[in-house]
């Protein structure tokens, strides 16, 4: 049954056939690819999750030196009322030598209030700040998962995390209240 193959391949119809095959396949392929999108997009955050929640925090009960944890969009946010020493330490850090150089002034709106997202920029654990022990070598936070140390400005100083703790968008509604988000 091996006759006539060569002949057939050279017939004047071949080009037209090829074109039809390629065109049909291309249309079907593109159609299939496009119809994939809903199946991919359904996994993205839903409308109710998207509806950006904001969180209001009353600062008045937080004493100097105290840190509280609030929830914003399901994530922990640390609000720290810094002491004078902490502010000084944060401001005097050698900015140029930091893994992620940022001045303290760029990270706070009012010196005594440090507000950062409590999610380690390494792989997403919650860094701890237990006044008695686990604060890390730079006095700020320590991430127990893989040993990242953050300073009094929430900046990464040592360990595998690449970036500083994120500062969420927030504004002071009045002297004792902030709105995160």
């Amino acid at each position: 049954m091996a006759e006539a193959h060569v002949e057939e391949d050279q017939s004047p119809d071949t080009d037209r056939r090829d074109f039809l095959y390629i065109a049909t396949t291309a249309v079907a392929g593109i159609g299939a690819a496009i119809s994939l999108w809903p199946f991919i997009d359904q996994m993205n955050p839903t409308a109710n999750v998207q509806a950006l929640a904001t969180t209001e925090v009353d600062l008045s009960p937080i004493e100097t030196g105290q840190t509280i944890k609030v929830v914003w969009q399901g994530k922990p946010v640390y609000v720290r009322h810094r002491t004078q020493e902490q502010i000084k330490a944060a401001q005097s850090a050698p900015v140029d030598d930091l893994p992620d150089p940022e001045t303290d002034a760029d990270r706070v709106q009012q010196d005594q209030w440090l507000i950062v997202v409590g999610i380690c920029t390494h792989l997403g654990c919650i860094p701890v700040s237990d006044p008695d022990n686990l604060r890390g070598e730079f006095g700020g936070w320590f991430c127990p998962c893989h040993g990242s140390h953050y300073d009094d400005s929430g900046r990464i100083r040592k360990g595998p995390a690449p970036d500083n703790l994120a500062v969420p968008p927030y504004q002071f509604i009045d002297d004792n209240k902030i709105l995160i988000g």
Binding site: P45, Q73, L123, G124
Partner: peptide, 27 residues
Amino acid sequence: ATVITNLFGVIPFIGDEVLAWLWGGFG
């Protein structure tokens, strides 16, 4: 789940979008 999904965050440029897609949320 948190640590392993966050590995996808290292994808350049679209890391955060990929994470939100995997999680179906912000975490």
